Amino acid sequence: MIDHPDLSRTKTEVVEASKKMHATGLVTAVWGNVTARVPGTDLIVATPSGVEYETMTEDMLVVIDLNTEERVGGTLKPTSELLLHLAIYRARADVFGVMHTHSLYASACAVVHKEIPPLVEDMAQVVGGSVSVAKYALPGGTELANNAVKALGNKNAVLLANHGMVGVGDTVAEALRVSQVVEKSAQIFAVAKQLGNPFLLSHEDVEWLRDAYKTSYGQK
């Protein structure tokens, strides 16, 4: 049995984020998935495949070794998008939470292969720029994972073509925040396009907003 002081806390955070993801309409039924990295380890806590979020408990979660990809905790099968999550953790040492959603407006942008530009300040703060679209690949495989990592770059969100979106953060709570803000931004983008031609934030403004968010926003 794995014994690490932060494992229990990480499991609690994953369950809380998963339930909020479902309650706020970022996913429908059992789709979508959430993971978090246990601080100071190569252990990844993942939601199980096909389990209703309303009934999900901490003992249903799966613990994966990032290096071997083996299940080292839990008895259920992990999310079918595990390779996507693991690829992001390997590429981004700053990421400790990953959330994959199928929210309506972000998914609509993914379906038309249209990135969400930096048109509102909160998206610039939490994402760090536009939300790019990763090249399409079938779900669950290494091609999808590699495409997502490439399109994500050093930002905190990416659209998966004809699929959904992924939000990442330094905590799983931050990944949830990113996912919520991206969905709201996608809605604003869709409405703004109907009203006229949206004016985008400049690259310099995006950089300033992102830096201020990381260094001084909130109770820092």
Rank of each mutant, 00 (worst) to 15 (best):
P118R: 08
Y213G: 01
K20P: 09
A134P: 02
G129R: 13
V95E: 03
E54D: 07
G164F: 14
V51K: 05
Y89S: 03
M165C: 13
Q187D: 12
V149D: 00
C109M: 14
V112I: 15
E16V: 15
K135T: 15
A190F: 14
A148G: 06
L159C: 11
T10W: 10
M56P: 12
T79H: 12
R92L: 00
L82G: 00
E143H: 07
L82P: 04
K19S: 07
D211W: 15
E70M: 07
I116G: 14
V127K: 06
G129P: 14
A106M: 06
W31D: 13
V158S: 08
N146W: 06
T75D: 14
A106D: 02
L201E: 00
S80M: 14
G167P: 14
A148W: 11
A91T: 03
P118S: 09
A87H: 08
M99T: 09
K214E: 13
A175V: 12
L86Y: 03
A186H: 04
P198E: 10
M1S: 12
Y105F: 15
A17Y: 07
T28C: 00
T215L: 04
V149P: 01
S80Q: 12
L86H: 04
V178E: 10
M21F: 13
P117I: 09
L43K: 02
N33S: 04
T12S: 13
L195N: 03
L160F: 03
T57E: 13
A173I: 11
G50C: 11
G196S: 02
K220R: 14
S107P: 00
D42R: 13
V62Q: 11
V27N: 12
K220N: 07
R177S: 08
L209F: 09
V38W: 02
T47R: 02
A106K: 06
V133C: 13
G169H: 14
K155H: 15
T68I: 06
L66Y: 03
K135W: 05
K114G: 01
Y105L: 15
A161V: 15
V51T: 10
L152Y: 01
T41P: 08
S216D: 00
D170C: 02
S216H: 00
Y89H: 09
A17N: 09
N33Y: 03
V149N: 02
V178W: 10
T57K: 11
V131H: 15
K20Y: 11
Y53I: 11
Y213L: 00
Q125C: 06
K214R: 08
T47G: 01
N154F: 05
S132N: 15
M123R: 04
G32W: 02
L82H: 00
K114V: 05
L86R: 03
R210P: 04
R92N: 01
A151S: 05
G97H: 11
G164D: 10
